[in-house]
């Protein structure tokens, strides 16, 4: 039963993704779409950690920025992009494992966790801003202070440093990465590890009394989220072709949280849609001068918290169900209910 559900879901996801990836370039330029896909991945990283792991991390931008900086610095020093891409996943993950272990074994929860992750991001922001001048050099890469690091080797076909992946190809590459990450996240949530993580989110004390090592599991979850954010950061560096301390900014961190809330916390697709949708809105608003961006995102956040606290994804899922269930039902909906709440997010 579970296997059948998984293969059906897999097919559904692949078909939906192929349609979206194919159709969207007719409506929006691939250059813009690329960054929307990257932000979708960044949203998904916090959606996993917060929505399923119950860890409210205010500093997801720290891992995003670290991924981008790691890529830029490594690309300048190494030249070929394959190893820098891998490092951009590994270094934020390693940093998150250390930070997470300190937080979770120190029994910090809720608001303290939020404050510390936020402060870590602000420290990185401050630090990167202060790295102007020739004293701050890693290998051949100057950190460049608030100007950031431009001019690094961008993504190339592995083994062929001269064949760049850019433009439309970068868009398709990013979309494939997002799809892969999405499927990995889905598989993780279906596994026992994912189900236990949701149990920990629901009741940590009970999970501990069942015999589950809560700090270790939360650290792993936190690390997985950071690895995804790091990958998103590396892709962002390739898209923007420059990394600046703004990646670590407070606004960036806040945006990720808003994406998750608006998209739908506790679903997988919600944060992806929230990220892409709100970022596109921000892009459109950026083309006019009448009303400031942050006013609109703030208003959207307030409206969602008040009127649609579950976010968009559950609404879409319900709409989809009411469309598909007009036909005579083949399977009993009762059977789907509780199982899918664990593997979660029918959307």
């Amino acid at each position: 039963m579970r296997e059948a559900g998984w293969s059906r879901e897999l097919t559904g996801t692949l078909v939906a993704a192929a349609c979206a990836v194919g159709v969207l370039p007719m409506l929006v330029s691939t250059y813009t779409l690329t960054v929307l896909v990257i932000y979708g991945m960044l949203g998904l990283s916090l959606g996993l950690v917060w929505g399923f792991g119950g860890i409210l991390c205010f500093g997801q931008a720290a891992f995003f920025g670290l991924g981008a900086y790691t890529y830029a610095i490594a690309a300048i020093n190494i030249g070929e992009s394959t190893v820098p891409m891998l490092l951009a996943v590994a270094i934020p993950a390693g940093f998150a494992a250390l930070l997470g272990a300190m937080l979770f074994y120190g029994r910090l929860t809720d608001v303290y966790l939020g404050v510390i992750t936020l402060v870590v991001t602000l420290i990185l922001h401050r630090f990167m801003n202060a790295t102007a001048g020739s004293d701050y050099v890693i290998g051949n890469a100057r950190l460049g202070g608030f100007n950031g690091i431009p001019g690094f080797q961008t993504l190339n076909v592995p083994g062929h440093p001269a064949s760049y992946v850019w433009g439309d190809s970068l868009y398709y590459f990013c979309a494939a990465c997002l799809l892969l990450v999405y499927l990995l996240v889905s598989a993780l949530l279906r596994s026992s590890f994912g189900r236990i993580a949701v149990g920990i989110r629901e009741n940590e004390t009970r999970a501990a009394l069942m015999g589950y090592d809560v700090p270790a599991r939360k650290t792993v979850m936190f690390t997985a989220g950071a690895a995804i954010a790091g990958l998103a950061g590396a892709l962002f560096a390739n898209w923007a072709e420059i990394v600046t301390p703004r990646l670590f900014s407070l606004g960036q961190s806040a945006d990720i949280i808003i994406w998750c809330i608006v998209g739908g916390l506790g679903t997988r697709i919600g944060p992806v849609l929230g990220a892409a949708g709100l970022s596109y809105l921000k892009f459109l608003l950026g083309q006019q001068g009448l009303i400031h961006n942050s006013v609109v995102s703030g208003a959207i956040l307030v409206l969602f918290v008040l009127f649609l606290p579950g976010g968009i994804a559950p609404v879409l899922a319900n709409a989809w169900r009411s469309v598909t269930q007009r036909r005579p039902r083949r399977r009993s909906p009762r059977r789907r209910g509780p199982r899918s709440s664990l593997a979660s997010g029918d959307a």
Binding site: N203, R206, A207, A208, M210, V214
Partner: peptide, 28 residues
């Protein structure tokens, strides 16, 4: 720590029922 004691085979029911409300009874 609690999880280590529990892993040794100690089952505990707390004073205020400690269950996972977001999951089904079966999943609990």
């Amino acid at each position: 720590p609690a999880h280590q004691v529990a892993s040794r085979g100690v089952g505990t029911k707390t004073q205020v029922p400690s269950v996972m409300d977001g999951l089904s009874v079966f999943e609990n």
